[in-house]
């Protein structure tokens, strides 16, 4: 049986209708990632350059080899492997060993994308698959963060908050307070002068890139807006009810991978819903899960897993939110 043709017929989410526009759109995504790339190179220097190059090169090689081995039409010209490599590198710690970065890129392209049938058929965002795989495979390397500029080992802002929360729960309030003093100022978090993954620290650079994508019409405002909005509203409620004030929601919006997740990963054309209503549900779900994982879960950060989990239910969301124009009228017998 020819799988290729049957996949084209039964694809439940025909996200990409005009294949000519894919390379151009991917080029725009790369352009939109440039500000974050510059910020990353500035704050993390050579470490950043090495990891990004490794991820992109390995991703491109895997894409080419995979298509050849699986005897499928070459797909390298659509630029999507470069985007996956870049996005994966952006969610890795600066000090990650290069071989781990390389394995992550290979897993992202081979297991995350090509085994599902290539771009357009993958259920999950490939870069996030790569990251989730690495987090479970080499947790020590994936949770060792270095500070910007000088590169000494440090904790991420979300890591500090989680640790302080655990200390509080163990009854060591003094140590918790001491730890909270290490939190960076909100201004540093906005420009990216904090510990964290290579491309996620500078919220400002990511917002500029996100706005460019919105302006070019490649992404729908609904997902990033509802995603960030849900996180903001939920953390405002938590912040006000625990007496931490408006500092708390601002902190959560700027911290971790929320900006890169909301603008560049949750909006992935292939793995997010196609209906308008569906996109709002998707954003709400991502926001809710992110806040739940950050405040109640074991991991300090939940953007990666919340987007992956919502990717899982994307076909379901599409199914229940698609317009009924061509559907059968319900029989009220």
């Amino acid at each position: 049986m020819n799988n290729e043709s049957s996949l084209l017929l039964v694809s439940s989410s025909p996200h990409i209708r005009n294949t000519d526009s894919v390379p151009a759109a991917m080029r725009d995504v790369i352009i939109a990632l440039l500000p974050a790339l510059v910020a990353s190179l500035y704050f993390f220097r050579m470490a950043s350059l090495k990891v990004i190059l490794t991820c992109v090169v390995v991703a491109v090689i895997c894409e080419v080899v995979c298509r050849k081995v699986m005897k499928r039409e070459a797909s390298i010209h659509d630029n999507s492997a470069i985007v996956t490599g870049l996005l994966l590198a952006f969610c890795l710690p600066p000090a990650v060993p290069l071989w781990i970065a390389g394995i992550g890129a290979a897993v992202a392209i081979i297991i995350g994308k090509q085994l599902f049938g290539g771009l357009g058929n993958n259920i999950y965002n490939p870069a996030l698959i790569g990251r989730a795989f690495l987090t479970a495979a080499w947790p020590v390397y994936m949770t060792t963060w270095s500070a910007p500029l000088d590169g000494v080992t440090t904790a991420t802002p979300l890591g500090i908050i989680k640790e302080a929360g655990k200390l509080q729960a163990l009854g060591d309030a003094g140590a918790a307070q001491e730890l909270m003093k290490q939190l960076p100022a909100l201004g540093d978090m906005l420009i990216g002068n904090i510990g964290g993954s290579l491309g996620e620290t500078s919220a400002l650079a990511l917002i500029i890139g996100g706005l460019y994508l919105l302006y070019r019409g490649h992404i729908d405002w609904r997902i990033p807006f509802t995603y960030i909005g849900t996180v903001f509203i939920l953390t405002t409620i938590i912040g006000l009810s625990t007496g931490q004030g408006m500092w708390y929601p601002l902190f959560h919006v700027l911290a971790g991978g929320l900006m890169i997740g909301a603008f560049f990963m949750a909006t992935d054309w292939v793995t997010s819903p196609i209906t308008k209503k569906g996109r709002i549900i998707f954003g709400l779900g991502c926001g809710l899960l992110t806040v739940l994982i950050r405040t109640k879960g074991g991991y300090p950060e939940g953007v990666c897993y919340s987007i992956l989990l919502m990717n899982t239910v994307t076909p379901l969301i599409d199914r229940y939110t698609k317009s009924r124009v061509f559907g059968r009228v319900k029989n009220h017998a």
Binding site: I103, I111, F133, A136, A137, W138, P139
Partner: peptide, 15 residues
């Protein structure tokens, strides 16, 4: 050596 821990965790079984 640095084995990929994920393979002895549940996801490794599914993969």
């Amino acid at each position: 050596a640095n084995p990929a821990l994920i393979m002895i965790l549940p996801p490794g079984g599914f993969i």
